[in-house]
């Protein structure tokens, strides 16, 4: 049987990351359990799952920070388990570790130069500062920046060697919504430049918004992979018709013959929709006292995908 990864020569494929049966055990604890996936050049790949699912362990194996206990992983065609290959990988990847902070008393520019100096070649710091929109803070010490701005410095630092692939581990965890949006903006810009991005997140909306391909990981195993739309279509369940603020009384006012409706916490009525049923349901609702209520159709999200696949919501995991 031929090795599916053997034909690959370093730097000569669109496959930026190839993972086959990758495992990582700590004693009896299996952090990553035989996962396989690929990441293609120019793609934004999101590794989605709750805390403790194995996301960071996987990404740190790819960054050569941890050694796998089983399976194989190639980054840019180099084997993460081989010492000589690790040196080649380190030259070519960009990394933003989870909860990364740059050096407190160095300025934004000095920090970019500091980490840039670790590589033979580095991008112009001012261009990176422009990319992450920190021109005004160029000479501000890192410690004076807000959480969102600090994270943008981290992004600039992760790009300083013009990497072939950027690993961003939970880049928006702990940020307020506005700062999250700003970081998304930077990642979108990277996407626009054709950068290959490997993103780990436990935010469903983040994966849905940014990723071309999403792999959902739970308890060390990948449980689904696809584009966000594919995942939602396959695992998200039905669309839902929502009748706002109808309350318990509204349920008794529903016309007969509808799928089983449920009342949600704010008093909204939720009715699962089968394809092609929307028009007939709306017409029948028009005949009831509910006709003047606000009505919307909600598409399932990746949150629903996770719920349907695991029986839990990511938010139940304390995130």
């Amino acid at each position: 049987m031929s090795d599916p990864l053997a034909a690959l020569l370093p730097g000569q494929s669109d496959r930026v990351v190839q993972v086959e049966g990758l495992s990582k055990k700590y004693g009896d604890n299996v952090a990553v359990n035989g996962i396989s996936f690929n990441l293609t050049k120019g793609e934004v790949f999101a590794f989605l799952g709750p805390n403790g699912a194995g996301k960071t362990t996987t990404v740190e194996i790819l960054e050569c920070l941890r050694n796998p206990t089983g399976g194989r992983a190639l980054v840019l065609g180099y084997d993460v388990s081989k010492r000589s290959d690790q040196a080649e990988i380190r030259k070519r990847i960009g990394v933003l570790p989870q909860d990364f902070n740059a050096i407190d008393r160095l300025t934004v520019r000095e920090n970019i130069d500091y980490f840039g100096a670790m590589f033979k070649q580095q991008l112009d710091a001012d261009k990176l500062i422009e990319l992450v929109d920190l021109k005004d803070k160029r000479d501000a010490q890192f410690k004076t920046l807000s959480g969102g701005l600090k994270q943008r410095v981290g992004l600039a630092v992760s790009l300083v060697n013009d990497p072939a692939v950027v690993f961003l581990d939970e880049p928006t965890t702990g940020l307020d919504p506005r700062a999250r949006r700003d970081v998304w903006g930077v990642i979108e810009r990277l996407k626009g430049q054709g950068k290959t991005v490997f993103l780990t997140t436990h935010y469903m909306d983040e994966a849905e918004y940014l990723a071309d391909i999403v792999s959902i990981i739970d308890h060390g195993q990948i449980i689904a992979t696809g584009t966000p739309d594919q995942l939602i279509d396959t695992h998200g369940g039905k669309k839902t018709l929502i009748i706002r603020d109808a309350g318990q009384e509204g349920i008794s006012q529903l016309p007969p013959g509808l799928p089983k409706a449920e009342l949600r916490n704010a008093g909204d009525i939720a009715i699962p929709l089968n394809n092609g049923e929307l028009t007939s349901i709306l017409m029948s609702l028009a005949q009831t006292p509910l006709h003047d209520k606000e009505i919307e159709v909600r598409r399932p999200t990746l949150d629903d995908v996770f719920l349907n696949l695991t029986g839990r919501r990511v938010s139940e995991e304390g995130n």
Binding site: E63, C64, L65, A87, R90, K91, I93, V95, L96, P97, Q98, D99, F100, N101, A102, I103, F115, M118, F119, K120, V157, N161
Partner: peptide, 12 residues
């Protein structure tokens, strides 16, 4: 602060 982790992913 994960500075060492970050440095460990570079050629340093």
């Amino acid at each position: 602060l994960k500075i060492i982790k970050k440095l460990a992913t570079t050629p340093l």
